[in-house]
Amino acid sequence: MTVIRFQGIHRLRSTVTRVVMEKPCILTKTLGAPGSIYKCFEPCIDKHFTIIPYERFVQRKEDFAAKIQAVFSWGPNINVDRDLLQSLPNLKAVINGGVGVDHLDIPLINSFGVKVSNTPHVVDNATADIGMSLMLASARKIIEGQHFSKFRESDDFPESTMGTDVSGATLGIIGMGRIGYKIAKRAQGFDMKILYHNRNRRPENEERAVGATYCASMTELLQRSDFVMVVVNLSPQTHKLISAKEFAMMRPNSTFINISRGLVVDQDALVDALLKKMIRAAALDVTYPEPLPRDHPLLSFPNVIVMPHIGTHTLETSQLMVERMVTNALAILNEGQLPDEVKA
């Protein structure tokens, strides 16, 4: 009698343990595969979730579809379309890594009762850093200097290698949100004159803290700036915000910097402005498409820096992004709320 009771208790404990240890399932592209979350971040996710690789899911949908409660999207690595949404009956959220969600059809996703989140705030410093890096690299011709050191045919510096000063120059920031404000803080350390244009003017105490002057008109900012940096979200209102008209307003010795989204700029107009020497240079972390085809005209200019969208591409920031994705996923599954929900 005692033995039977002991075995029953043992079986019960075993069952309870399995229930407690079972982790919710999330769908994402195989970690470490091209375009996916890096393998080094797997422990952070695996601690809380059972990871179902998208590649396995496609092959065995009937085994996994009902178990998946969240999709982890790392950029456009998974096409969250109607077919995928219809195949996941218990999906609660699409958890995006990064701030930009222009690759997600949020109204469509919401129509299935599924929420969307991103990872704001944690990307701010790294993105501001890349903006400053592009400005400095372009102004001081860092890449040209590297090429000279590696491939020079003589030891004489040609006149064309001279850069331009950042310290004391005028920086115009289009989009003074969290990231734009952090850029202004950094630029203040270079004694730059800071202008900004934004939908809403910041409080005067915030302007004073970074020495920023508000331009109600973007025209004024473009005409007065030595460096123009775009830091806006992509929306219908900002699609091709900077086009031929805006480039024509800029100074001939000015530099255009884009760290927002490629589609904020009319790239054909940018190419034309560079060909006509309407601006001195350009430095881009974002383009359309990404990456650019190798024969794209922008890649042929010696005064243009094009990066493959690496604004948040640091070990520390990527770790914070993944951790924030986990936080959002746990919140929606346990509490039904998304701390960083993005609404249509």
Rank of each mutant, 00 (worst) to 15 (best):
F6M: 13
S14P: 08
T15G: 12
T15C: 14
T15N: 14
T17G: 13
M21A: 15
K23C: 03
I26H: 00
T28D: 06
L31N: 02
G32D: 04
G35H: 03
F49V: 00
I52H: 02
I52T: 09
P53M: 07
Q59Y: 11
R60Q: 15
A66G: 08
I68D: 01
V71G: 00
V71I: 14
I78V: 09
I78P: 01
N79T: 14
V80L: 05
L84M: 10
S87G: 06
P89L: 05
I95R: 00
N96F: 07
N96D: 06
G98M: 07
V101C: 10
D102R: 00
P107F: 01
L108P: 02
I109A: 02
N110A: 12
N110I: 11
S111P: 00
F112N: 03
G113Y: 04
K115I: 08
K115E: 11
V116M: 03
H121R: 15
V122Y: 04
A126C: 10
T127R: 03
D129R: 01
D129S: 04
G131C: 03
L134V: 06
M135I: 11
M135V: 07
A137R: 10
S138I: 10
I142Q: 09
H147S: 13
F151A: 11
E153S: 14
P158F: 05
P158C: 02
T161F: 15
M162F: 15
G168S: 00
A169F: 08
T170Y: 02
L171C: 05
I174F: 08
G175C: 04
M176D: 09
K182I: 13
I183E: 06
I183L: 11
A187H: 06
G189K: 01
G189N: 00
Y196S: 04
H197S: 09
H197M: 07
H197C: 10
N198Y: 05
R202E: 11
N205G: 10
N205H: 14
E206Q: 12
A209G: 03
A212T: 03
T213I: 11
Y214T: 03
C215S: 04
E220N: 13
E220K: 14
E220D: 13
L221Q: 02
R224N: 14
F227I: 09
F227L: 04
M229R: 08
V230K: 06
V231E: 09
V232F: 00
S235L: 12
T238Q: 03
S243P: 04
S243E: 05
K245D: 13
E246G: 03
A248I: 06
F256S: 07
F256D: 08
N258S: 07
V265Q: 08
Q267R: 09
Q267C: 06
D268A: 10
L270D: 09
D272Q: 14
A273C: 05
M278S: 15
I279C: 05
A281Q: 05
Y288L: 15
P293M: 06
L299Y: 07
S300N: 14
P302T: 09
M307F: 12
I310M: 10
T312K: 05
T314H: 02
T314D: 07
Q319R: 15
M321H: 04
L330Y: 09
L330P: 02
N334K: 13
E335Y: 08
P339G: 00
D340S: 01
E341R: 01
